[in-house]
Design a protein around this nucleic acid. Sequence first.
DNA 1: GACCAGGCACATC
DNA 2: GATGTGCATGGT
Length: 223
Amino acid sequence: MAKTSQTLMDMYRAMRQRFGHQAWWPGEGQLEICIGAILTQNTNWRNVEKAVANVKAAGLMSVSRLHSTPQIQLAQLIKPAGYYNIKAKRLHNFINRVCQSAGGDIAAFLGRSVQSLREELLSINGIGRETADSIILYAAGKPSFVVDTYTYRVLLRHLLIAPEDDYEAIKDFFESNLAQDVELWNDYHAQFVAVGKTYCRPAAKCEGCPLEGLPHDRFAGQQ
DNA sequence: GACCAGGCACATC
DNA sequence: GATGTGCATGGT
């Protein structure tokens, strides 16, 4: 176990040395981070930025304004992020819960314990595990490790997980092998995204990857 | 034109 | 429980 912890910290240091501190989440304020977390589901972040900019330009980046904005109007604003009809519904589901559960006070909604917050987020239709953990870590600033497709690819390529490991198993792998440090977990996940955008893709070469020196699966860098 | 991008819910077997 | 499918825009 100590060896695994060491390996994870070595990986982190190697990525951070290459990419620098990532200073996530790339958004302002708790509400905007929550909105971005929902909009980025299976979507390129650049498209999300356009959608978020539209919402802000319309003066709707507040719980009460979003709450009173018709879903069809919200859908038009977030169109660049794709899946706009279903995401407009998901945004409303989230906002409605913040209103019901915390009187529309986003800070109060995010202020409870990690376990309680995670359970409530997961009970909202449209918020799954990754979105919930992103909201907890980046909007609430509380320790909940985020697992995404990049995390899965990097760990799989470097033989740290098995293909059949599910989300909760991978999340637990990190949380039980890293110090419980919000700043570390925040930057660690961001580093995985940075490395995953260029390396650790199915047909990507490993040359130049900061994790090049680690053990690889036998398909790494092959066609 | 194909493929991918910081998922999730739901239907079907 | 595992697998398949719909949702959709914009960049490469």
